[in-house]
Structures are given as structure tokens and as C-alpha cells.
Amino acid sequence: MLTFKVKKRASFLTLILILTVFAVFLILKSLSDNILYFKSPTDIKTSEDLIFNKKIRVGGMVKKNSLKINSDEIKFVITDFKNELNVSYSGTVPNLFTEEKGVVAEGKLQDKKFFVADRILAKHDENYMPPELKGIKKKDAK
């Protein structure tokens, strides 16, 4: 079964696989900033070279009681429970956009605390349940 040719092919394959995994790892590591779909408020607070004139994405939770909807503007606070960022936006929002739910905002930073979005995406979490159960959970929480 294990002739010389078989052994040769097996070692060739192992070598190729190890090299590929290593190469992919290096590529992903060097691209890691671009692979992140959005930055968290903490990332923005701690980063040294902030980009103000280019579009970026910021994501996190919509802070409780921070959502204010006027006739021409929606204001809310994105939080990752450590740091916060004020966001202003005018336009339509997806159905799932509410307080205490995940959100990704696309737009430009004005300064470290203020972000003007021109697109809002809602982020869904991994929980799925029927509506009756949600009521029960809320009552338990109270």
C-alpha cells in the first residue's frame, strides 16, 4: 500500500497544505483592517490616525433611550458598552432598526464623538424565538 510513490505524493501534499495555510494566514493578517466590516466606538476612540474625509462604517448597539426621530433627522448613540459615538442620519431605516439592537452606520466622522451617517444597516443577532416568548422574557426581567 505505502509504496515510494504514495509516500512522495503524501509528503508533497502535506508541504503544499502547510505552505497554503501559512500564506493565507499572512494575507488575512495583513488585511485584517480591511476585513473588519465595521469599527466599534472603542476602535475609533483608541485609533491614532482617524480618517475624516473618507467613508467608514461604525457598528454597535443603539443605546437605550437615545433614539430621537425628528421630521428630517434621526439621532442616536452607538455604544459597545465601553465607549459611545453620537450619530446623525436622515433617510429611511431598515425594519429591524430599534433601540438596544445591533446597527451598522456608513458615513463620515466629523470628530471623535460625532458621526454623520448616510446609510444605516440593521444587524441581527443570533437569537430566534416566537413573539409570545419575548413577552415572557421581558416580564422575567422586570
Binding site: 485584517s32 476585513i35 473588519l36 466590516y37 465595521f38 469599527k39 466599534s40 457598528g59 451598522v104 444597516l121 444587524k123 441581527h124 443577532d125 443570533e126 437569537n127 430566534y128 424565538m129 416566537p130 416568548l133
Partner: peptide, 23 residues
């Protein structure tokens, strides 16, 4: 590993799943 718009896995190999049993 990264921040994604896609939600994390609901059904895990180890641990409780976050999808209700009726689903």
C-alpha cells in the same frame, strides 16, 4: 474572528443553541 454584518452561529457544536425549539 472579525466584525461582520452576518450574525454569529445560532446552533453550536458545543453549548446551547439560540434558536427556540419550535424553530
Amino acid at each position: 474572528w472579525w466584525n461582520t454584518l452576518h450574525q454569529p452561529a445560532s446552533i453550536k457544536i458545543a453549548g446551547a443553541s439560540t434558536i427556540h425549539s419550535s424553530m
